[in-house]
Design a protein around this nucleic acid. Structure first.
Lengths: 218, 218
DNA sequence: TAAAAGAGTTAGCCTTATCTAACAAATTTA
DNA sequence: TAAATTTGTTAGATAAGGCTAACTCTTTTA
């Protein structure tokens, strides 16, 4: 059994891995808000437990075992977020911090019931995929809005940065998952997008915002 | 802010206090499954934080502050149990271990939503009272079934021992909160009760069981 | 390509919450 | 009431997870 701390390391390693699945000690320590030596010693511990593969001075990589355990924690996190939004009417900008705590609860039945009551959802309230019971994920291939062109019509599928501030920003502008967005123009000097959706005819979204919106082309 | 460990000490002190509100170090350590010196040193820490009143060689007593904090943790525990039973269809014999973990979650909104969705309940699935937001409890005065006499008709209001085994025992015999029980006779040699309720005409309950059933005389 | 900057490591210390061993006080019992 | 038992305390050790200081390795940059 892994400790709460170990679970948080696994989750961070899973979430911030690059394409090769590697994470630098520096990035890991920043993500967890701890100092590098602390991360370094925990990595060694995880390596002994065969949860990560590690050679000094090289990026850390989760093993298959580590990946699965991380995915199952993320499964609990995302099921919880969905449950809080759908069944308890808590705002999508408020559920993250609660799920961060609930994800560590040891109980098979609790999460099975959530899954069942939600009708076996495949995405969470932010559009992120919920790993299955074996820790497998199938991630729909989205494009960043920032990579789309003027004239295209797209549908918001997921958001990347799920901080409360960003979600409140979207909510305030009526931008929800599923919203169909028409790209009216792209300002070349700052890459901001002018879009229309719903009743809004000309809303400007900065490039920072567009990089965090994942869309499907229609 | 108290640590998870401190919260468990407060809860135990609240739950096992005698009529004078005192708890021996020995009983506390047994209740928490730790050794006496460990309990002893934590008591000193709690005393420094003004959560308990403590003089060496005397029973530990929660201060008003300690009592309130304990009651608020118990409030979260009992709201959770009720939510799991009522809204998630989890059995009353399975909710304790989950609530034991959920009670430590830091979130005002989560427990407010539970309270609201449940319609502001005053008792948990085992009949124990749910303290209010200020930590105040009003405990209906029940009698133990074992203190009742033959011929009386009573209604099951709460159960004392909430271990999963005991609850399964009751469920298997169709004994639920609210069940009206008629006491047919009491065997003097072992204080077992012969009772009838529902469709059951002559069920024998041992004195151990009767001491754990809290009833209201009708 | 050598120096500077950044990333990673090692050593040693701290705090929390636990333990055992040994001793002291209080209570029970003969 | 004196001895035995139980309860409570003190001292010192340990493991987990964190830190700082100092050093080393790698990468970037002038």
């Amino acid at each position: 059994m892994n400790s709460l701390t170990e679970e948080n390391y696994l989750k961070a390693l899973y979430n911030i891995a690059d394409e090769q699945g590697g994470v630098s000690v520096n990035d890991l320590s920043k993500a967890l808000g701890i100092k590098m030596p602390t991360a370094n010693s925990m990595i060694k511990k995880l390596a002994e437990k065969k949860l990560v593969f590690y050679e000094t001075y090289k990026p850390v990589q989760l093993t298959e075992k580590g990946k699965k355990e991380a995915a199952l924690i993320i499964r609990k996190h995302r099921l919880t977020e969905m449950f809080l939004v759908e069944k308890m009417n808590i705002g999508w900008d408020e559920v993250h911090d609660i799920a961060e705590q609930v994800e560590h609860i040891k109980s098979i039945i609790l999460f099975e019931k959530m899954d069942e009551l939600l009708g076996f959802p495949t995405i969470d309230p932010h559009g992120s995929p919920i790993p299955d019971k074996n820790g497998r994920v199938n991630w729909k291939q989205y494009n960043k809005l920032s990579d789309c062109k003027a004239g295209e019509t797209v549908q918001l599928g997921a958001v990347i940065n799920t901080t409360s501030e960003f979600l409140k920003f979207l909510t305030a502008r009526n931008l929800n998952l599923g919203t169909k967005i028409k790209i009216k123009s792209v300002e070349t000097f700052d890459n901001s997008f002018v879009v229309s959706y719903g009743k809004r005819m000309a809303e400007t979204l900065s490039s920072v915002v567009c990089e965090r919106l994942l869309v499907e082309k229609l």
